[in-house]
Amino acid sequence: MKIVLAPDSFKESMSASAAVDAMRAGVTAVLPAAEVVGVPMADGGEGTVDAVVDALHGRHIEVPVSDPLGRTITARYGYVPLRQLAVIEMAAAAGLELVPPDQRDILCASTFGVGELILSALDRGAEDFLIGLGGSATNDGGTGMLTALGAKFLDADGEPLAPGGADLVRLERIDLTHLDPRLRDVRIRVASDVTAPLLGGSGASAVFGPQKGAGPADVTRLESGLSRLATVASATLGGTQPQRAGAGAAGGLGFALVEFLGAASKPGAQEVAETVGLARALLGADWVFTGEGSVDAQTVMGKTPFGVAQAAARAGARVIIFAGRVVPDAAVLLDHGVDRLVAITAEGTPIEQALRDGADSLTRAVAEVCRDLA
């Protein structure tokens, strides 16, 4: 029997790699003769760097960068030298969690630090980039990132705009003359589960702005700024697609990566799966165990367990999802190739205990399932 272990992280409890180890302990305790293959997974959000670094035996690189408000912090990204692959989570430099709630300023927040991470990876010789979008504090359309990479966003007097999304309403010209020339020769892939366009009622400003502290007036100004960016970018580049699904990810960073840097954009779990070689690991598999901290009906919108289930179905393997919390509406996953949903924590368990005992609980739950399989 071949069993593939492909979980995401269990947030605040264990990394994807630790979840693989916990699952492996449960399998080998009951089925010692089983062939077990571990593939840490992610969907482009938190844990993507760790999952890919662990799966491909890369390393973490720490560098000083600007946070969303321009303050110097230390951020890290992943690098796999044998593949010249850099793995970046934009939230490491421009994430909402980097700014205390009482200091958040979405009007001025910038993705400049994301560009600094890309520059560091270019200096190391990276030719392939996987950039995870999610958890951003920004709504600047990726202009901060592009500024760090050499682009200039200018007003009517030829002066650079202030950082952030608010000042984009004054944008008149984009100068790409000094954009880092190394970007022409690299491959950039975007991993995100956000399908929002750049503009409109379902776009970056309207949907995600309030989550980052924007009031109604702020949303209106930010929407105007991104609209102006789309107009000037289209004139500069000879056409853009601001309504493309995913352009609104990370406050419009998805728009900048695709339109200015030629990035390819796919659902995060699919992009990570291709990077870590999940399809290869699934060859000949009988069962696939996946999971994350919580599963519900929204999991089918592109979260890791759903992406893994789809890949397993293509390989002819059966799937069991383990989670700390299984919401009743998660039963919809049973209509999408999943055999069973398993809650690893007893209902009513205090959250602090559930997080602390996550690895042991996962091992026990996997062992119980393996007894059924045996």
Rank of each mutant, 00 (worst) to 15 (best):
G45I: 14
V30F: 10
R59G: 10
V52Y: 05
I61W: 12
G38M: 03
V52F: 10
A25I: 02
G44E: 05
E12H: 13
V30E: 05
T48N: 13
V63L: 08
S66F: 05
G26Y: 09
V49F: 15
D43K: 15
R59M: 00
A34K: 14
V37L: 13
H60F: 13
V27C: 00
D43N: 11
V53D: 10
G45R: 08
A34T: 07
V63C: 04
L56S: 00
G47A: 04
G38W: 11
D54T: 06
S15T: 15
G38L: 01
P64C: 04
M23D: 06
P32E: 12
V53R: 05
T28G: 02
G44I: 06
A16D: 00
V20S: 08
E35G: 14
T28L: 13
A18P: 06
H60M: 12
V65A: 01
T28S: 14
G44D: 04
A19E: 12
V36F: 04
G47L: 07
R24C: 02
A18W: 11
T48S: 09
V36S: 10
T48L: 05
P64T: 06
G26S: 03
D21P: 02
A42W: 06
V30N: 10
E12M: 11
S66M: 03
D43T: 15
V49I: 11
L31G: 05
V36T: 15
V30A: 11
V52C: 11
T48D: 12
V52I: 15
E35P: 03
I61F: 01
R24T: 12
A22H: 01
E62W: 14
D21S: 13
M14Q: 08
P64W: 08
V65G: 00
V30H: 08
M23Q: 09
D43M: 00
R24V: 02
I61Q: 03
A22Q: 06
E35W: 00
P40C: 03
G38P: 03
H57Y: 03
V49R: 14
I61S: 02
A19S: 03
V20A: 10
G47P: 11
H60P: 02
A34W: 08
A51I: 08
R24W: 11
V52D: 09
V52L: 08
V37F: 12
A42M: 09
T28E: 14
S17T: 15
G44Y: 03
D43R: 12
A29E: 12
V27L: 11
L31S: 07
S15R: 08
D67K: 00
L31P: 15
D54G: 03
L31K: 13
A34E: 04
T28Q: 11
D43F: 09
A25G: 13
V49W: 09
V52R: 06
A33Q: 15
V20F: 11
G58Q: 07
E62L: 10
V49H: 10
A34I: 06
D43L: 03
M14S: 05
S66P: 00
V65E: 01
A16T: 00
P64L: 07
R59N: 01
G26N: 06
D54H: 15
A18D: 13
S13I: 13
V39T: 13
S13G: 06
S66N: 15
V27K: 11
V49A: 05
R59E: 15
A42V: 01
V37R: 03
M23R: 10
D50V: 05
A19R: 06
P32F: 12
